[in-house]
C-alpha cells in the first residue's frame, strides 16, 4: 500500500495505521517525510526545466542570425528556432533525432507526476490531520506563497496544459507551424487575453517557486547555519528572475518590442 489508511479520530488511537514497509526505494515514498523528499527532488528537476526554458526563450530577443542550415547554405533565421531544432538534434548521432529530447520529456513528465501525486496525497493527509479553528487565525510566518502552494500548483498545472496546447501542439491557432518557435510565440502572445494568461500564470509560478525553492532545502535536510540566511535570498532571487524573464516575453510582444 502506498499511503496509510485512515483509522479513527481520537487521541491514543492513531489517525492512520502504519502500512507494511515496501522494498527500497519504494519505502521512501510511503511516509510524508519521504514524500516531501521526493517532492523536493522533483521540484529541483522542474525548477531546472523552468530555468532552462526561460534561458532558451531569452533567445527571442536575439532575433535573426545567419545560420548554416541542413541544406548546407547560410540563411537568416530566428535564433530561437535554431535553438528549438538543436534540442531535437541533441546527442545526435549518439542517439537518433529527438530521442534525447523525449528522454528529457519523459523525465519531466515523471517528475511532474510524482510532484503532483505527492502533493495530492499529502494534502489529503493534512486535511485528515487538521481541524479548522472556529475563530480567525492570525498567521505569523506562513506567507501568501506557502499558504497557496496547492492553488498556485493547480493553476500552473492547467496553464502548462494550455501552454503545451498553445505552442507545442498548436491547437489554439491556425497560424501555428511546427518549428517556427519565434513566429508562433509572437502570433500567440499578440492576443492580449493570451498574453494576460501567460503573465498571470507566471506570477503564480514565481510565487510557487518563492516558497518551493526555499522549502526544498528543509525537506532535503540541507541546512547549515553558515549559509541558511542565503536560502531565502536564493529562493526569492530565483523566483524574481523567473518572473522577470518569463513575463518579459508577453510584455515585449504585446508592446511590439518583439515582432515578426
Amino acid at each position: 500500500m502506498a499511503s496509510p489508511t485512515l483509522v479513527k479520530k481520537s487521541s491514543d488511537a492513531p489517525l492512520r495505521a502504519k502500512g507494511k514497509e515496501l522494498p527500497f526505494p519504494l519505502n521512501l515514498y510511503q511516509t510524508a517525510v519521504g514524500k516531501k523528499w521526493v517532492m523536493a527532488l522533483t521540484g529541483i528537476m522542474l525548477l531546472g526545466f523552468v530555468v532552462f526554458h526561460m534561458v532558451g526563450n531569452l533567445k527571442l530577443y536575439i532575433g535573426q542570425v545567419e545560420h548554416l542550415n541542413a541544406e548546407g547554405e547560410y540563411k537568416l533565421d530566428y535564433d530561437i528556432n535554431i535553438y528549438g531544432e538543436y534540442l531535437r538534434e541533441l546527442l545526435v548521432p549518439l542517439l537518433p533525432r529527438t530521442y534525447a529530447l523525449w528522454g528529457l520529456r519523459f523525465g519531466l513528465i515523471g517528475a511532474f507526476a510524482l510532484h503532483i501525486h505527492s502533493a495530492l496525497t499529502l494534502t489529503r493527509m493534512n486535511q485528515v490531520s487538521n481541524v479548522a479553528y472556529s475563530s480567525k487565525r492570525d498567521f505569523i510566518a506562513a506567507n501568501f506563497a506557502s499558504r497557496t502552494m496547492r492553488v498556485s500548483g493547480i493553476i500552473v498545472f492547467f496553464y502548462l496544459i494550455f501552454h503545451l496546447a498553445d505552442l507545442t501542439w498548436g491547437w489554439t491557432s491556425d497560424e501555428w507551424v511546427r518549428g517556427h518557435v519565434y513566429e508562433n510565440m509572437v502570433n500567440s502572445m499578440s492576443r492580449p487575453i493570451v498574453a494576460l494568461v501567460y503573465i498571470f500564470a507566471n506570477i503564480l509560478l514565481s510565487i510557487h517557486i518563492f516558497h518551493g525553492a526555499w522549502s526544498m532545502f528543509q525537506s532535503l535536510g540541507i541546512n547549515n547555519p553558515k549559509y541558511n540566511a542565503l536560502r531565502r535570498g536564493f529562493a526569492a532571487g530565483l523566483a524574481g528572475l523567473i518572473l522577470l524573464g518569463n513575463i518579459s516575453f508577453p510584455l515585449a510582444i504585446l508592446s511590439g518590442v518583439v515582432d515578426i
Binding site: 496509510p4 492513531p14 492512520r16 516531501k36 499529502l122 490531520s129 506562513a142 502552494m149
Partner: peptide
C-alpha cells in the same frame, strides 16, 4: 513514522 500516524505533514510554513 509514529509521528505520521497521528499528525499531518510539514509544508515548511514556519508557523
Amino acid at each position: 513514522e509514529t509521528m505520521e500516524e497521528f499528525f499531518g505533514s510539514c509544508t515548511n510554513h514556519g508557523e
